[in-house]
Design a protein around this nucleic acid. Sequence first.
DNA 1: AAATTGAATTTTATTATTAAAAACAAAATT
DNA 2: AATTTTGTTTTTAATAATAAAATTCAATTT
Lengths: 300, 300
Amino acid sequence: MARTDDRFRSAYNKLLDICATMDVGSQLPAEVVLAEQMEVSRTIVRTALQKLDEEDLIDWEGRQKTLIKRPEQKHRLTQSESAPSGEELEKLFFEWILRFDVPAGTSLNIAQLSRQFGVPAHSLQEFLSGLSRFGLVERRAKGGWILSGFTAEFAVELSDFRLVLEMNAVRQLLSLPDDHDIWVKLKDLEREHEDLKKDLKTRYHDFSTLDEKFHSTVNSVVKNRFVLEAQKLISLIFHYHYMWDKHDERERNAAAIEEHLEWIRAMLAHDRLHSEEAALKHLRRSKETLLASLKDHRRA
Amino acid sequence: MARTDDRFRSAYNKLLDICATMDVGSQLPAEVVLAEQMEVSRTIVRTALQKLDEEDLIDWEGRQKTLIKRPEQKHRLTQSESAPSGEELEKLFFEWILRFDVPAGTSLNIAQLSRQFGVPAHSLQEFLSGLSRFGLVERRAKGGWILSGFTAEFAVELSDFRLVLEMNAVRQLLSLPDDHDIWVKLKDLEREHEDLKKDLKTRYHDFSTLDEKFHSTVNSVVKNRFVLEAQKLISLIFHYHYMWDKHDERERNAAAIEEHLEWIRAMLAHDRLHSEEAALKHLRRSKETLLASLKDHRRA
DNA sequence: AAATTGAATTTTATTATTAAAAACAAAATT
DNA sequence: AATTTTGTTTTTAATAATAAAATTCAATTT
């Protein structure tokens, strides 16, 4: 067999749904119209109509497509659950790396991994090819891939890159007008940080989410596809590290909250120097934490 | 047929080369040794040895691999010239886009393009998948790809991103010690700019190369894989634009040389403020030029 | 003339197949 | 006996073949 008929199956079911809304004896719309409604090509529409005709649900002759009877549950085609999408694959991949602490230099086995993740091998290939742009994986001459990232060096460079991008975001943020959304959002974030700080004893797990929210808010003022794409990778890796590294979590989070608060307040006060200073302080400490957790993990 | 036997063919020829350096009657080394020398697996070595045996060039029995006669030209296997590598493909792709001024929104025809570029379709797929990380192309739901970049917006965002990265490079550069390589390189670049300025009337075409050299020198002080990767894309696109946009070339280059010189001299004088100012000025004007050339191109 | 369908063509996604690599086991050599 | 080397099998990856879907173009109906 070549490609799957998943697309046909879901289209056919959608066509059944359309029929269900119509009266017996009435005419189905033209093929082009159906194709548009079903977001699919006319070829599929025609194949689906043909099956509908075979099943005696419609009477199809030329442009006469008369509904004979309402479709029932039994007419629906079963759909094989679709493979994880690109984003889901990304998540699976990073979770796998961080959960099992896959060391740099490991050769990646496409066939095995694609089975493990439940995706077609060539989707995984494409995904890795995309990652290779970030130097996280490398293609070997003899074929196959090796994981080249997640070394201390990688963490350092990623953190440095993050620093450059976020410092830029801070500078842009401070030059925004007073009636901009961002000031309200920052005020809200300040309150959320204060709330979490009060209940830290019980809620310290919630910091990971708040951290991501804060950084993405700051970065949201930069409207740039390259920056955005880079930040997706950065937050992904920092996020997963927070997830797996449970060492000293409460103390770390308490310190981070203080740093965030200082940074937020400096920005709210439009104090450029102090904002940059606070940002720098937090980002540098974040880098150290990431590095320490990497070393710690290796040793364990 | 499944995969090509290119790898075998080149290995076989390499094995002939090895035989050519040996005396008739002597023994070839062990399979593992050959495999190492030929940078190939033992499977190929054995297949190659078998063919050598069939051609009566060697007498192969167990670990006895006796050379019967020296291989000649006629024994060599013809190799189908290998497909363009990743970097060559990249070049071909961008040249195609800029030369034919392919507009944003164009749907890319994998089959046709892969024929045009002389690469296997799936290599092109992987390449595009990599580019999609930069938002230059997008995958459509119905399948296939569309070129989404190379709009004015793209140019603006790219230029802004470049600005962030190069300003960071400048700051890092200025904090380097006096005995660092970079100062010598900058001094050389100053001279090269002065030379070109003198002969601008005849040599103004040479600026494109010098421009790339200058920017990559400045950026070379940042040791960061993400920055480097981003800069590869940036210089690629700026470079190709210089190549195709011949409008006002001499005047543009003359102005750019002056801006470069001011920037270089400010850095050589360790004047932080002036350096940043000059860099900003040049980068902003570069952005305008890129934008203008895009608009111009569209109109033409 | 416009809309719609029928049929043919092109293109893409996926599998089956073969080449190559890697792993394993047996034999020969030191 | 230990090491090296070869023979064999198993696994993995690259590519051509193929079926599904999209697109195009001509013919037909309204």
